[in-house]
Simulated scan of single mutants.
Amino acid sequence: MPMARWVRDEVLNQPADFVDFLMNDYLMKNGFKQTERKGEQVWKEGDGYFSMARFLKYSYINGVLHLEAWVGLFRENALKGFAGSLPKKFYRESLEELLRLLHQPIPQNGMDQTGQPVVVQVPDHSGPAVPAMVLGILGIAIGLLIPIIGVILSGIAMSLGQRARNSSKYGIARSAVILGTIGMVISLLNWIGGIILNFLLF
């Protein structure tokens, strides 16, 4: 087994349909699609260019959930390390929250102790998605005029977008990451161009 993968074997002893429900909810919200990679069936999200490619593989046998997660389109990278540290951190935290919610008690009759229907908690971090999109657009627009502010806004947009990729607003969040990346490039090019122009003129 590749050592670059984040691997967990979690003893849940939960009903298989409950585990399938939470796993499918997580995969759908995060935009994962099933694909074949190097001869094994895995779940993949991200193109590896504008947004970091994330991979997930899991199985649930005899009450034990086996998880393998990694990032990187061309080579497997663990969910730690300096390169891409922020998206790795958010991805790892989302998986740890998923494991926590998989342990929530599920009464057999679907009712809690007061006789009310049990509401299953599911992971969702959709709050930053829309603000990230707005900041990404502003980062591009302002980056053409004031590069330093464009860099700041684009950086915040990328950070918030990465966090919201683990949510039901995955599509908006991913767009925010792309816009933030474009805004960052435009702002930096404008900044460097301004420095070169000043040097040539003065």
Rank of each mutant, 00 (worst) to 15 (best):
L67K: 03
Y49P: 01
W70G: 01
E97L: 13
F21T: 06
F82I: 15
Y49C: 06
W43T: 04
P15V: 05
G63M: 13
L22P: 03
H66P: 09
L73F: 12
E93A: 14
G46W: 00
Y26C: 01
V11A: 09
L95H: 06
N24P: 00
R8S: 03
R5Y: 01
G63Q: 12
E93Q: 15
L27F: 01
K89W: 14
S59D: 09
E36L: 08
R37P: 01
M52D: 00
R54T: 05
L73G: 05
Y58W: 15
D17R: 08
F74V: 13
P87I: 14
L67Y: 06
G72E: 08
K29S: 03
F74T: 12
K57G: 00
D9L: 06
W43V: 04
R37I: 00
G81Y: 14
F82C: 12
G39L: 04
L73H: 11
A4I: 04
D20P: 04
L12P: 01
R37T: 00
D9R: 09
V7M: 03
F74N: 13
G46F: 02
N62M: 08
D20E: 13
R8W: 01
Q41N: 09
Y26S: 00
L73R: 15
V11W: 05
N30A: 12
R5E: 05
V64K: 14
F90W: 13
D17I: 07
M23E: 02
F82K: 15
R92V: 10
N24D: 07
K38R: 12
I61G: 06
R75E: 15
G46P: 00
G84T: 14
D47K: 00
R8N: 05
P87G: 13
Y58H: 14
G81S: 14
V71P: 01
E93N: 15
S85T: 15
D47W: 00
K88T: 09
E96F: 03
Q14W: 06
K80L: 13
N77T: 09
S85I: 15
D9S: 08
